[in-house]
């Protein structure tokens, strides 16, 4: 293990999140089994009191979970000078077999934690805990994934050895290298990918605005949001990175978070992750629009989420377009 403040911060955040989420999931199991709003039993009243506390604490834990994705990437970027061959976070994540799986789990948990926060906020708008069982069912899904993430993240950090020679991002995300997901995405042709990117973003923005104005097509927009998110991630590797680095062969999705590129990667990823969580959240909440206690408030909340998602995707697309226009790279 490398004793670095960021490593300790990552592990502590992971252990705190896991402990709290497991405890909350145990409590959630009681809610799922025993919750009956019509009952005046002592147990029911205890559950009502406790859920208020637990969901408030979980709000903070999941906010920490959202931040932990960026902290993890920042840590990988910070540690790269310690490993021979690593030029950025891409190399650090490759020092053992657990780096990239941790990153994938952190991305999945970011979206799930964000959705839980969206659900929780919606649930708090109703006077009769309208989404309480769904909220804790979602928690029951998230909790094991967060525990697995904690275990793999621990294995990653505890198994880090400074004498490991790792690969640089030029090798991991090379269009010339055969094999590996990074290389396969990097070798996608840039021009067609650009059409796919702008086409998907246009569909997502039109779908989002239609949903925002008419209140119809929520599920479609949730799907478009997810598609736009995936396409945007692929596009960063395929062609967006090329314009930012002004190099026709450098596809790394991590170097863009470095100071040399004005940390623009953080902004791009924040816009993208914010957009996908609010977009999927808005669509999924449509399933509960007819719930009696949410009728008056849920529509406005879904509208706000949709607008936020559309604006974030629009900002992401605008930022990418600006980078392409000001870039000295000619493809």
């Amino acid at each position: 293990m490398i004793l670095h403040p960021t490593v300790i911060a990552n592990l502590l955040a992971s252990y705190v999140s896991s402990f709290m989420v497991v405890y909350a999931a145990y409590f959630g199991a009681q809610i799922i089994r025993h919750w009956d709003i019509q009952s005046g039993d002592e147990l029911q009243l205890t559950l009502e009191r406790k859920t208020y506390l637990i969901s408030t604490l979980l709000g903070f834990v999941f906010a920490l979970q959202l931040l932990s994705l960026f902290l993890f990437v920042f840590t990988a970027d910070t540690l790269c000078p310690l490993f021979v061959g690593a030029m950025c976070a891409a190399g650090t994540l490759n020092v053992n077999a657990f780096g990239y799986p941790t990153l994938v789990l952190k991305i999945v948990n970011f979206i799930l934690a964000g959705l839980w926060l969206v659900f929780n906020h919606a649930d708090n708008q109703g006077y009769d805990y309208p989404l309480i069982k769904k909220k804790y069912l979602l928690l029951a899904v998230i909790a094991p994934i967060i525990v697995v993430e904690m275990l793999i993240e621990s294995a990653y950090f505890l198994d880090m050895k400074a004498d490991v020679i790792t690969s640089c991002c030029g090798s991991l995300f090379s269009s010339e290298k055969e094999g590996g997901l990074g290389s396969e995405i990097a070798s996608l042709p840039a021009k067609p990918m650009m059409w796919v990117f702008y086409g998907t973003m246009l569909c997502a923005l039109i779908g989002g605005l239609f949903f925002y104005r008419k209140g119809k097509g929520g599920y479609l927009y949730a799907g478009l949001s997810l598609a736009a998110f995936v396409i945007a991630l692929v596009s960063i590797v395929s062609f967006i990175s090329l314009y930012i680095y002004e190099l026709p062969t450098h596809h790394c999705p991590f170097c863009i978070i470095m100071e040399d590129y004005h940390y623009i990667g953080y902004l791009l990823y924040m816009l993208l992750f914010g957009a996908v969580v609010s977009g999927i959240g808005a669509g999924v909440l449509m399933a509960f629009i007819e719930v009696e206690s949410l009728k008056r408030v849920l529509g406005a909340y879904i509208s706000r989420l949709t607008l936020a998602s559309v604006l974030l995707y629009a900002a992401f697309t605008a930022l990418v377009t600006y980078q392409i226009l000001v870039s000295n790279l000619v493809m």
Binding site: I37, G40, E42, L45, E48, R49, Y52, N124, D128, Y129
Partner: peptide
């Protein structure tokens, strides 16, 4: 809040209401 039981105000059950 009571430890058990319910209170209704004009027919609306109020003991289960969230704090806000």
């Amino acid at each position: 809040r009571p430890s058990a039981g319910r209170v209704k105000l004009n027919g609306r059950e109020i003991t289960s209401l969230p704090e806000r």
